[in-house]
Nucleic acid binder design. Sequence first.
DNA 1: CTGGTAATTTGAAATATTTTGAAAGATATT
DNA 2: AATATCTTTCAAAATATTTCAAATTACCAG
Lengths: 256, 256
Amino acid sequence: MSMINIAERHKFILSKLHEKGYVNVLELCKELDVSGVTIRKDLKLLEDKALLYRSHGGATVQNPYTIDKPVNEKENIRREEKNLIGQTAAALIVPNDAIIIASGTSVLSLAKNIHPKGHLTVITGALNVALELLRRPEIEVIQLGGHLRNSSTSVTGTYAEKILEDFSCSKLFLGVDGIDLEFGLTTTNIMEAHLNQKMMATAQKTIVLADSSKFGKRGFGRICGLEDIDEVITDNGISAHVVKRMEDLGVKVTVV
Amino acid sequence: MSMINIAERHKFILSKLHEKGYVNVLELCKELDVSGVTIRKDLKLLEDKALLYRSHGGATVQNPYTIDKPVNEKENIRREEKNLIGQTAAALIVPNDAIIIASGTSVLSLAKNIHPKGHLTVITGALNVALELLRRPEIEVIQLGGHLRNSSTSVTGTYAEKILEDFSCSKLFLGVDGIDLEFGLTTTNIMEAHLNQKMMATAQKTIVLADSSKFGKRGFGRICGLEDIDEVITDNGISAHVVKRMEDLGVKVTVV
DNA sequence: CTGGTAATTTGAAATATTTTGAAAGATATT
DNA sequence: AATATCTTTCAAAATATTTCAAATTACCAG
């Protein structure tokens, strides 16, 4: 096989990669009739463009260490920021409080940072939040029931909403996928957005946890407008301008 | 099996690990056609990345939700037996089935071994079971809601029982703490026992998963008598005499 | 179009690094 | 004590990187 140019070669490499899941340098040398040095340069270029993962002897289509852990992966990004946000949010909890924790990776760091003085009641639909809180004997956990959507660790549906009707909480800690000044709060899933609305109705205050990357983004399911929430906790990647606009809407903004 | 490179090998190890819950060095040597030294180096690398736990002779999954020690310790004992029991139970599931999975360490191995052909609906109160099943897109998971007791990963209470009323399932897979020929099935907690009764009413067949150490033991909360269940799956540590007695009571006994 | 220069691409050769397993000794398990 | 598993060491083999010069291509003024 003799290639016209570098672009053709890259196309060939990528198509083989996607077909087989991996490629190796020696085979490509023969198939494309070029030297190993060239193939390695090609692979390096493609790796720089995040189109493949390099490994000794070849390359794979995806990082082998991140198999089927979508939630876990998200968890690793911005770990430090999220942890700070979680700490700050946890400080808002008072003894004998009753709170709701909604789903999202940010609220998991909240759960990890909760070390209550007195008794605490937590209502949550997120399995990972519930499992995290179970360790602490002073916390009473109410798990919402219902449908579990793939790739989310949180329930949705009418069962969860029914259970919520029996409670009244002081605060809702809400993790979102997007915060847009015009469009408001959004999440990727319409069912989850609906449950979040019910949660807001059950709680006296809504506190949103969102790292700065969430600003300006819009997810599919709209939860509410910015004017409906009480407080946002975020990291210092947020612009002063956005802070100002939110404060004008009556939202308290805490930057950690 | 001849692997292209280290990345492919690691991917293979991890996927086997996630499927079975553990791997051992010798098997991997044969399967991947490399020496033990290499496998051990691989496992060490993966352990450094916190992707597994090393143990003599092999490795086990790193469970990110490894919370309360009591359950976790239990989980490690009799892993091999439990895995076999789980496999056998999973084979009973048919395409388009609707089943209930109750709490207990044995049923977690069931969950790990479920790889349904068609669609499958699973109702469960156990958070770890739900989290495990979430990975598989062909499974629809209904999480029961309610109170979470400390040191258990399963809900109890009226909310869970209410949700159950809306369903009808073909099978209930039940993990118990004790099986006594006279006293019947027991669990450590009275609330859980009550929920288990409701589950039995919701399912047409009750299949009990119990390794042989559970026989002759009595927990605090009685679930039902042996005559009320349909099948028991256990390991070969059980005595022939006990098998005979149970079969006389109309219980099908499967020894793996 | 032509001829010349600059930039890019390529591979051979030399060098460096990584991977692997055999062997030997240490450690753990029963 | 006997056996299986583990770690270390070391050398060979495979794979990568660097360097440099030749080949190709791109570009542009005349």
